[in-house]
Structures are given as structure tokens and as C-alpha cells.
Amino acid sequence: MPQLNQETKHKINFTLNGKAVSGYTEPRTLLSDFLRQEMALMGVHVSCEHGVCGSCTVQIDGKAVRSCLTFAVQVEGRAVDTVESLADENGELSDLQIAFRKHHGLQCGYCTPGILMSVEAFLEINPKPNEDEIREMLSGHICRCTGYTGMVKAIQDVVETR
């Protein structure tokens, strides 16, 4: 691994929501802070900053990753996707987003972007999960508002219709 100087900013190049981007960052800057403050992606939510709650989850090369436990410099050359990538180019919500609305799978919405990114990565690996598997996957996220019932139903809905 290359040595990075703590005091200086480093240029990083990566793919963000399908577009090639670059930016400058200190080695200690968290990916969550970088995406919010430098890339203006306010759908990345910071809550616990120790990898338990899952609010800040994004995808790196298709895998769900806590952006609060990742340094910005680590995404050099990689593909990062955030909740902003889910709606289509015309701004239409995805089937998963629509299902969350239909089943009232969100209240304050703070945990939602991270959950959506985890669900999408999960359904790539396991397109037909049962309820227990869905709940097990969701256990990587904390939601304080909903009691999880609505989001479980929303995911089941998408699993059936996709």
C-alpha cells in the first residue's frame, strides 16, 4: 500500500453513481464525510460512526459497505453507488423505493438510504430470500421509528414482483 502523508490532500479518482469523478482528500477523511461534504450527496447519513447502525451504507463495487468505516482514499479506482443512484434517469423511483412507500417502510427516513443500498446488494446475491433471511440481512441496520414490519413487507413485495 502506498504511504500517504497525513498533512497533505491526495487526489482520488473513482466512479460515483456511474460517473467518473475526482476529488482531493486528507488520508484521515472518512468516506461518509467526503461523499457528503465534497460530493454533495446528502443521502449518505451519518449516525453512529462506529459501524453498527448502517445508516451510512453505500455500495463499493456492488458490495454494501459502511462509509463511516471507510477512508475516502480507499475508493481510488473503485465504483461507489449511493441512494442517489436508485431512481432512474427520469427521476422515477425504483420498484424498491415504491414498495417502501406503499408499505410505510420508513418514517423519519434517516436510516432508509443505507437500508435500500444493503437490500439491493443483498438481492443481487440472494434474489429470493425468505422472511427470516430478510430479517437477518436487516439486522445490520438500526431503525428507531418503524419496528421493521413495513420494510420487511416492502422487500417481500419486491422479491415477489422482480
Partner: peptide, 8 residues
């Protein structure tokens, strides 16, 4: 929800 689900 349309706003919240977009992260907007």
C-alpha cells in the same frame, strides 16, 4: 416519501 427515498 418521494423526497426521503431519494435521499433528497
Amino acid at each position: 416519501d418521494a423526497t426521503l427515498l431519494r435521499g433528497a
